[in-house]
Simulated assay, not measured.
Amino acid sequence: MSDAAEPLIDHDAGEEALWAALLRREPLPGRFYAVTTQGVVCRLGCPAKPPLRRNVRFFDSVAEAVSAGFRPCLRCDPQGARAGIHAAAVRAACADMEAAVSAGDAVPPLAALAERAGYARHHFLRLFRQVAGVTPASYAAALRARRLGEALAAGERVADAVASAGFGSESRVYEDGARVLGMTPGSVRRGGAGEVIRTAFGSSALGPLMVGMTGRGVCSIEFGEDEARLRAGLAARFPAARIEPADEAASEAVARVLAWVEEPCGALDLPLDLRGTAFQKRVWEALRLIPAGGTVDYAELAARLGMPQGARAVARACAGNGVALAVPCHRVVGRDGALRGYRWGIARKAALLRLEGARRG
């Protein structure tokens, strides 16, 4: 191994940027640095005190650094060994909670989940938030809300559905129905009865699209093969809602969407009625901060949200987005830059990125 006092990096622009990221403790997926005086390799973003620059070497993989004689850092776990163990423990806890909710039993408390996983309570709480992106309590609440929605949609009486889902009282669900379900329990049970959704259609360079709008804002922007299928998809989601032709606001919204597709510039600024869990909404708000023409990968977006092990949870939240373009999930790509799943088709995702890139250039 080279002497520690000898400069070990070339001061070119690429490594200048990596060094600046190291000092900021900024996570950069797929890039690592080794500290020659300590003999360890770390991921960029490691919480350890930054080393002297002359003692740093940069690598494209942990395997390359290990071959050069460095051992993985115990703090940032660049190989992901501990992260895999933590993720498995969290998945097991999630499975326990799902089983309890499905059976109509009480959700295990945090102390019991931590004991089963073999961690101290406070440590397991931190691990769960890192992996899942939410606390165990929030995850359990989302499971209860899902079970409640399924029971109501199946026609159960509200009181029975509330009890079987594990909510303490019917009044609590009614008081906070918008947060729990996106509408009142009675409306869910009636398949959206009482909801009025105005729809407008247009033909874009990416194919037919539909905008659905409630009194609160746009709740749906969907691409499809034709108007009939788009309308049928909305009707399946809200079988008893009143779906009516566009009013002035909905017509204006679809015109703005079509204009944006023709010339994508900046954010598509529309009043939105986003319906999802607290975590999903948090991810969707982060998506809206990605500028047109830019992309991030799932791991990077998870790191921005303070959950470095939460790439899969972020991907699921992206997949649950039903408001194309205004919530630009098409700007999230794989770590290698490859295009991953898009509910409106990979071809549309690629076309959108090309359009935005051409506009930016």
Rank of each mutant, 00 (worst) to 15 (best):
L355W: 08
R157N: 09
A154E: 11
D176Q: 13
L8A: 15
P29M: 02
A151H: 10
G207Q: 01
P208D: 09
Y139D: 07
A145V: 04
P308D: 07
F59H: 12
Q130W: 12
L258D: 03
L74M: 14
E195P: 07
R43W: 08
L127P: 06
A111R: 14
P308C: 04
H11M: 14
A292C: 10
G149C: 02
N321M: 02
L22T: 03
A326R: 05
R343K: 11
C46P: 04
L181P: 00
G215K: 09
C46W: 03
E244A: 14
F32E: 03
L181W: 05
G177L: 04
D247H: 07
R146D: 15
G45L: 01
C94R: 15
D10S: 15
V188G: 01
G217M: 02
A255L: 09
A117K: 03
A249M: 12
V134K: 07
A303L: 06
R57P: 06
A81D: 14
H122E: 15
A240W: 08
R147W: 03
V211D: 06
G207M: 00
A20P: 05
F124E: 11
E248N: 08
E248Q: 13
L289E: 15
T277F: 06
V131S: 03
V134D: 10
N55H: 15
A112T: 12
L125D: 14
G207D: 00
V283R: 01
L270P: 01
E150C: 06
A112S: 15
R129C: 10
A250P: 04
A100I: 01
Y139G: 01
S67N: 14
E26V: 03
A63W: 11
L301G: 00
K281F: 09
P27T: 04
G39F: 11
A236W: 08
V196M: 04
M97Y: 05
M183F: 11
A13V: 15
A63Q: 15
R335M: 13
P328K: 01
R146N: 11
R335Q: 13
A159V: 14
A241P: 03
R275Y: 08
A106W: 07
E6L: 15
P27S: 09
A103Y: 00
Q38C: 08
A87Y: 06
R360C: 10
G207P: 00
V261K: 02
R343T: 02
P109R: 09
V218H: 02
V333L: 05
R43G: 14
A319D: 13
G133N: 04
R144H: 06
R340H: 13
A338F: 11
H86E: 15
A111V: 14
L258K: 07
V314Y: 01
L268G: 00
D60S: 10
A111H: 11
A89D: 12
T295N: 08
A240F: 03
L353F: 11
G133W: 07
G341K: 11
